[in-house]
Each structure stands twice: as structure tokens, then as C-alpha cells.
Design a protein around this nucleic acid. Structure first.
Length: 361
DNA sequence: CAACCGTGGTT
DNA sequence: TAACCAAGGTT
């Protein structure tokens, strides 16, 4: 008769559940394969974990397939031109991940002879690898007993122990609970099992407590508080910003684009030149056109929401002759321009211009 | 340490 | 429709 569950055989119970219910993923070595002696490729585990940061498995699948097809090893990725990697990452978001992905690949080649380190501290020292990813690679790829603490594990621990302290303040306590459960046996499978549990059973809303392998020891289920946990500190409202983009096409079909600075929003990505994006709605920021031309306002607007603000953009288009010298950006020949290389907000602007063009405007 | 940093799916 | 959410990291 105890109020809160003790570690006991909880990990074992979860591993038995995982043996039956493990989700299929292209980068994953399932429990049966592991038992057969098959080990995961650390490069693939690392790549998938970077992509999975704040991103769903369903979204990552196609990007992962394209990356490993194009760059099968860390050495090949390290040798890739920056623009190729940023273009392949376009649409996935959080573009600092792509810049750090390249930095990390090159560091693994330069500092570790092209072989990923297994040690948590060594992984943590690499660009783009934080506490979670270091633990994930160390445990999943190398089967070392490291504790992963992601959003899933936070939720599962908050419920299992009925912890009402709001995030992110509760992180140290949740880490303590998660670490106490991490087993020496099969730590790699266990790490994936807790996250699978959070993703499929112990979900944020309407958790399927009735079929949960930890339903008996779960304190929040006993208390009826599971759907309310974990508590979170309220988020700030998002302001609305406004701006203007300039889409210029040369008569030979080339498009005027610029590579954005490495720092800040959409850093390192291709985009249309434009104004600053400001919090004023009365007079839309127009900035300065990147090239002298007869600019036309497109009907409609681009709406997009980033992590911390909403954005409404006006779009202006122009056709320019072959002799013009732009003040900003460079002309990208038609055959080198792929809309899929653009981050989503820039692709929306392109789509708007094309639909207007087709409509004969 | 709080702010910054994308996007698409779900409710 | 708006808020919430996802295998977080960096500054």
C-alpha cells in the first residue's frame, strides 16, 4: 500500500509492452532486430533526433528519407554545400537546426574521425545537440543508460507521480523521477518505449488510461488528474506584424532572391527581398524595392504564423530587363530555382504570385 | 533565464 | 477559428 509508485519492475512492464507495440520508424532498430544483434546507425539516429526536435514523426519521415538518400553517411553530409542542405531542409522549420546539423557533421569528421561519440558529455559538446538529444543518441544508438527527458517523458512522469508543479519549473523534479526509472538493461529500447507511450497512450488530451501498461501504478489516474497534467505556465499572446515582399522576375525567367543572414528568423534560408516586419497596422511597411522597376501590388496577402508572432505581408511583383543591377539579392536562373527550396512563408508569396499570374492579373 | 526560433496537424 | 501541441537548442 503506497501513495506513489516505486521503480520496482515498472521499466520491465514497459519493455514488455514495447516488445509488442513498438512503432515502426525508418531510422529505428526494433526490439526484435536488437535482440538479433542488429545495432542502429548512429548517423541515422542523430539525424532523426535533430529532425524530431519539436516536429512530428509523420512530418519527419519524408525529410529523413530524402536526406539519407542524398547523404548516406555523416562524411558525405559534412562535404555538402551549405545551400544544398538548407534547400533540402526548407519547409521543416527551426532552420538553426539545419545550420547546426552541418556544423555538427563537420565537427564529427574533423574532431572524431567521422565516428559519432557514444558518451553523453562528448555529444553535448557538439552543435545542435542539447541534453535531450545527447541522451537520446547515447541511449538509442549505443544502448548506454542515459535518461531522455522530452515532452512525452515530462507528461508521463507528471502523471505517474501526480506532480502539479507547472512546467518548465518542474523539469528538475521530472528528470529525477525519470532517471530513477531508467534501467541498466535495454536502456535504448526503454528510452523509445517511454516516448512511444507518451505519443500513443499517455497523450496530452484524452489519454487512453484503460489500456496503459502503467495504469495500476499511475497516481494521476487514481486521482483523476491525468488529463490536466502536466501543468504549464501560460504563454504570452502573439503580436501581429506587417511587411512587404518584392518578387522580381527577369525576362529570361530568373528570379531575384537573397540568402538571409545566418542569425535570426529564417537564418541562412533563401527568401524574397522585402521590408522589415513591424508591429504597426496603420501604414504597412513597404521598405525599399530591391531594384528599380514598375512594381505592381498583388491582390490578396500572405498570412503566416511563426513561433512568437503572426505575420501579414503585401506582395509586389515586377518584370525587369536583362540589364538591371539589383541593390539587394541575386538573380537565380529559372532552371536553378525550385520553390521547394524556400521556407514556407516565402513559398506562400510565390504561390500567390503564380495564382495571380494564372488568373491573368 | 526568458526570449527567440517554423510548421502542420488536432481539437 | 484560435489555441494547443510535437523525440528542444541557443543565447
Amino acid at each position: 500500500m503506497r501513495e506513489t509508485p516505486s521503480p520496482g519492475n515498472l521499466p520491465h512492464i514497459l519493455l514488455e509492452w514495447y516488445d509488442v507495440h513498438a512503432r515502426e520508424m525508418p531510422w529505428r532498430t526494433g526490439p526484435a532486430e536488437r535482440r538479433a544483434g542488429i545495432r542502429p546507425d548512429p548517423y541515422r539516429i542523430w539525424l532523426s533526433e535533430i529532425m524530431l526536435q519539436q516536429t512530428t514523426v509523420a512530418t519527419v519521415r519524408d525529410y529523413f528519407a530524402r536526406f539519407v538518400a542524398r547523404w548516406p553517411t555523416v562524411a558525405e553530409l559534412a562535404a555538402a554545400p551549405d545551400a544544398d542542405v538548407m534547400g533540402e531542409w526548407a519547409g521543416l522549420g527551426y532552420y538553426a537546426r539545419a545550420r547546426n546539423l552541418l556544423k555538427c557533421a563537420r565537427a564529427v569528421v574533423a574532431q572524431h574521425d567521422g565516428v559519432f561519440p557514444a558518451d553523453h558529455a562528448a555529444l553535448l559538446a557538439l552543435p545542435g545537440i542539447g541534453p535531450y538529444t545527447a541522451a537520446a543518441v547515447s541511449s538509442i544508438a549505443f544502448d548506454l543508460p542515459q535518461t531522455v527527458l522530452d515532452g512525452n517523458v515530462e507528461r508521463v512522469m507528471a502523471r505517474l507521480y501526480d506532480i502539479h508543479t507547472p512546467l518548465p519549473g518542474a523539469k528538475p523534479v521530472l528528470m529525477e523521477k525519470a532517471a530513477a526509472l531508467t534501467p541498466r538493461d535495454r536502456p535504448g529500447d526503454y528510452a523509445q518505449a517511454v516516448m512511444d507511450l507518451g505519443a500513443t497512450i499517455c497523450t496530452p488530451k484524452s489519454p487512453a488510461c484503460g489500456i496503459c501498461p502503467w495504469r495500476d501504478p499511475c497516481k494521476a489516474r487514481r486521482e483523476g488528474t491525468a488529463p490536466l497534467l502536466p501543468m504549464k505556465t501560460p504563454k504570452k499572446p502573439k503580436p501581429v506584424r506587417h511587411g512587404t515582399l518584392y518578387l522580381a522576375q527577369r525576362t529570361d525567367g530568373a528570379w531575384l532572391l537573397e540568402t538571409r543572414p545566418d542569425k535570426g528568423l529564417l537564418g541562412g534560408m533563401l527568401g524574397w527581398p522585402g521590408s522589415d516586419w513591424l508591429d504597426i497596422a496603420t501604414e504597412r511597411p513597404a521598405g525599399t524595392p530591391p531594384v528599380t522597376a514598375c512594381w505592381h501590388d498583388l491582390a490578396g496577402e500572405v498570412r503566416h504564423t511563426f513561433t512568437h508572432f503572426h505575420l501579414i505581408l503585401s506582395v509586389r511583383t515586377a518584370r525587369v530587363g536583362p540589364e538591371v543591377q539589383p541593390e539587394r539579392g541575386d538573380f537565380v536562373p529559372r532552371q536553378n530555382f525550385r520553390p521547394s527550396d524556400l521556407p514556407t512563408v516565402m513559398r506562400k508569396a510565390f504561390d500567390l504570385s503564380q495564382s495571380a499570374h494564372v488568373a491573368g492579373l
